[in-house]
């Protein structure tokens, strides 16, 4: 029977750190991106070749969006690395996650607890790879980092005191409560960031698993296409929201 686990499966342990299949996947994603970056760096030319062209168009596209939000190319370039990394990392890990066969490579692990009815120990299949964002650890880590970076940018741009006065102020009772709400909203942002991405990708995984389980041929194809789209949209949403939060944090009222 189809086994679906919300938590990522543990593969092995190193120095007390449980290596899960999602962590492995995000390492692979990062390694691929780093390899791509180094490849790009080595072959960088004034007249771009195919690979550089693709990357440059992506950069121009993201920068164009950022210019629309930040207002100037200079500011856009300043915050570009964070936004671009979030976007590319999520996008590539999402797309790697729906790569056919990714969830099929794995091993069986005997389950220790005995099945209640049959009394036999059943083997559990553990996939070696699993889409990174289908693990809340990944999305939560990204969300926390994003919000921390947003606040660091805010402090950098307007100073610690002024930035904190967004949350804690005694100017007026209304401002005081609005500040408190803003403070809570920062945590709400983390939760919404992480659960939005996690929910979408995990749901996609489950959807694909179920359609492939029920009808192995042809039927999963449209769902795969849908997941390609969802993977892109979620990466876009995550980076766009981070962009907006940064622009709000660095704006002076």
């Amino acid at each position: 029977m189809l086994h679906i686990s919300i938590a990522a499966e543990k593969l092995f342990e190193i120095f007390g750190l449980a290596i899960t299949n999602t962590l492995l996947m995000s390492w692979i994603t990062a390694l691929l991106l780093i390899a791509g970056a180094v490849f790009l760096y080595r072959r960088m030319a004034q007249i771009p070749a195919a690979f550089q062209n693709i990357f440059e168009s992506a950069v121009e596209w993201i920068l164009g969006m950022m210019e629309g939000i930040f207002g100037s190319r200079q500011t856009a370039e300043k915050y570009f690395p964070i936004i671009a990394t979030i976007f590319i990392f999520i996008l590539v890990s999402n797309w790697l996650g729906i790569l056919p066969g990714i969830g099929s490579v794995g091993f069986s692990e005997p389950v220790l607890n005995i099945h209640e009815e049959t009394g036999h120990g059943a083997a559990r299949f553990i996939p070696l790879f699993r889409s990174s964002a289908s693990d809340l650890n990944f999305t939560l880590a990204l969300a926390i980092l994003a919000i921390v970076i947003v606040n660091i940018m805010g402090i950098r741009s307007s100073g610690l005191g002024r930035h904190l006065s967004r949350f804690f102020t005694l100017k007026s009772p209304v401002d005081f409560f609005v500040g408190i709400l803003e403070f809570i909203a920062e945590f709400a942002k983390i939760v919404s960031f992480s659960f939005r991405l996690f929910g979408n990708v995990f749901a996609g995984e489950v959807l694909l698993a179920i359609t492939a389980f029920l009808v192995p041929y042809f039927i999963p194809v449209p769902f795969l296409m849908l997941e390609v789209f969802v993977g892109f949209i979620q990466a876009l949403v995550f980076s766009m929201l981070t962009m907006v939060f940064i622009s709000l944090a660095v704006s002076h009222h």
Partner: peptide, 21 residues
């Protein structure tokens, strides 16, 4: 795991910034 993912992201950010962006 959270820390590992965060560190992973930061390393990626640093390297991409240095070699790509």
């Amino acid at each position: 795991l959270l820390l590992a993912q965060a560190v992973n992201f930061l390393i990626l950010l640093f390297i991409l910034k240095r070699f790509a962006y």
